[in-house]
Design a protein around this nucleic acid. Structure first.
Lengths: 128, 128
DNA sequence: ATATAAATAGGAATCATTCCTGATTATATT
DNA sequence: AATATAATCAGGAATGATTCCTATTTATAT
């Protein structure tokens, strides 16, 4: 993979924020440094950085959010202002509140575990 | 809220499947019963049913999936075939495999807890 | 039976994301 | 330092999911 100022800039911006931004937010930030950058370039580089494993992504309310923090952590999401805050779950099954940031009110939890199902360990037909 | 055959049909279809479908999949099913139904109607009714609390939704790979099972449960997602299977987590923090369907390989876990942050408990400004 | 507000069909609009193409650029080689 | 070339880019079109709009239909209260 060749060096590019665009990719480096995208990466630095993600590393420096804790806001779990959308691609469009990153695009605006990159534009303030490289005014001619295109949205497609930002999307492509976000995808490449994710393939490299140096950033992560997940979806919130139907859109992709990116995260420069690849260490194991969970997210608290405020359903009103959409704040996303990192936290470390300790024993989730015993209480929704364990490990949550102070004074935050947890109303619902969503756990999604991803991997390979019994069928896909041995076959290749796509279901979706 | 007035009765409508369309809403009732959407609801029945969701109750009868375990496949965590997209709006479009539901639309196809409804069409086989009410051929003139429109996609907008399906989306609107899915939203209304969710507001009533009788179905749930969440996003997978950037698109909305619906679930007629509103009881507390978690999902295992196969990253290859996109199978989504319900399971009951027991003690997630001690092992990714606890409570998983037999022979499934868990590779990553995502936990999102939603509610109100400290700020939104008392103020109304949206951050978004 | 009638009135009326809610719900609909059909299609246009929007928004996030991906794809395409001709131009630019990092870098290996001379 | 100049050149070659494959990777990357900018700009914009295309796609796909979702929402919005409007004239028509329909459930239901009277």
């Amino acid at each position: 993979m060749r060096y590019s100022e665009q990719r480096e800039t995208v990466f630095q911006i993600l590393k420096e924020t804790q806001s779990h931004p959308s691609a469009d937010w990153v695009y605006d930030k990159v534009k303030s440094i490289l005014p001619l950058v295109s949205l497609g370039t930002v999307y492509r580089n976000l995808g490449e950085l994710e393939d490299l494993g140096v950033i992560k992504s997940f979806s919130m309310k139907g859109a992709i959010r990116y995260d420069g923090n690849v260490a194991d952590h969970s997210h608290f999401i405020c359903r009103k202002c959409n704040l996303m805050m990192d936290f470390q779950p300790k024993d989730i099954s015993t209480s929704l509140h364990n490990g949550l940031p102070k004074n935050f009110i947890a109303e619902s939890m969503e756990i999604q575990i991803s991997g390979l199902c019994d069928n896909c360990k041995t076959h290749s037909k796509k279901r979706n």
